[in-house]
Design a protein around this nucleic acid. Structure first.
Lengths: 217, 217
DNA sequence: GCCGAACCGTAACGTACGGTACGCTATCTG
DNA sequence: CAGATAGCGTACCGTACGTTACGGTTCGGC
């Protein structure tokens, strides 16, 4: 049986068939939410329940494996911050904001966050930790080098990268994620996401941009 | 049987005994999350299951009634924005921010949001609508008059109150709510909440404060 | 004091679903 | 080709829980 750990590298030990099963489970999770049954997963994946139990131990094991499997797929290449000008910094920030909005508004992200939130209350909050680790904390890890590079280049001014990141996070996400999780119909087209990303970036630069003399009006 | 509507005034038709039952259900919901049983509610409330079903129809009815009951209790008196100076505006904003952080970090809020998120996926998303209506949208309704008054007084500068509110919301909440919902241990003492409220307010004023000439550094 | 309504406590029912056992087929290994 | 192993399909078991039914008790009205 696979060990359910918070480590992402667990997914490297998966055979192709197992990945296919997890993909089926993921699709079912997106469609039906947390109330999916083992029989439904088995039927969708064209495998037997016994195999599910042999591979993943029990229902929670299957769920965590599915979440980890999806989480391992959204790894994004970090950007390098060399030769950083104001234009490239804003471009990087806008890109991060846009990527993040696209992620949290995707069906799979909503489904995964829903099931993780549901399970966070009862005992083993493994799911929540995994989602958080590959979502918000992964974003922080990828964005902080950019912020630090911006500070090194004299473009940004902050004392703590963590608080700067959290402000950026708040300006980008605002109430989007909680509204989507609570089932609010909130249309995010490609265009509005771009606009929101640009707005958040400008606001962030207005707050944390290094002051190069008195600001004009 | 009580009708389960999104209207808050449904709670006015509740007898004292029913309110006591819903309070018991609420406490149990905070303790055990969504996986509470009807027998547990009946035992805790010292009432019979038959009464629960007669009053609330079924399990979902009980849950929605509980959520509406709690939602109806957090009504807060709106502040009036007359004789508004910069000091009183910042005080109001800080107070809103502090109140909001206190709300979303409370056990009952976390529990209610958890159960609402869990139920948002499957069909009738009544719970999510109720939580959203009495949480984020109620806050907006109470805060927007303050923002408008600030604009009337020449202290704030924005084109749309909704977007201004959403930025304020993001600066205040940042990643707090999603982290709490996902089970992240995130200590919010009274002191840190006050500091966060002040920081968010200053950031908001830096973004939306009316520019009265060139800013000093 | 009697009647009906409301309600408590609990026993019972039905079912859905997690988990297991078993028979069968296909593929690999010697 | 014989045996072993992996895995599919399915039937089955146990249990938890939503839902209902029923006997006993309190209480307001006549």
């Amino acid at each position: 049986m696979l060990q359910a750990s918070a480590d992402i590298d667990t997914c490297e030990a998966l055979t192709e068939r197992q990945k296919a099963v997890l993909d089926a489970a993921l699709r079912l999770l997106v469609e039906e939410g947390d109330n999916l049954t083992m029989t439904a997963v088995a039927r969708r994946a064209s495998c037997s329940k016994e195999t599910l139990y042999k591979w993943f131990g029990d229902r929670d094991g299957l769920l965590t494996a599915t979440v980890q499997w999806q989480a391992s797929k959204v790894r994004v290449a970090p950007v390098d911050g060399k030769g950083l000008g104001l234009a490239s910094l804003t471009a990087s920030l806008e890109r991060f904001a846009s990527d993040w909005l696209n992620v949290i508004s995707s069906d799979t992200s909503i489904a995964l966050n829903r099931v993780a939130v549901s399970h966070a209350g009862s005992g083993k909050d493994n799911l929540g930790a995994v989602v958080l680790e590959n979502g918000r904390f992964a974003l922080a890890r990828r964005l902080k080098p950019v912020l630090e590079a911006g500070r090194q280049a004299g473009l940004l001014d902050f004392s703590d990268a963590e608080t700067a990141f959290r402000s950026f996070f708040g300006l980008v996400a605002r109430d989007v994620q909680i509204r989507l999780l609570l089932g609010d119909r909130l249309e995010l087209t490609e265009a509005t996401i771009g606009g929101d990303a640009a707005r958040a970036t400008q606001q962030f630069l207005a707050l944390f941009g290094a002051k190069t003399g008195p600001q004009g009006l």
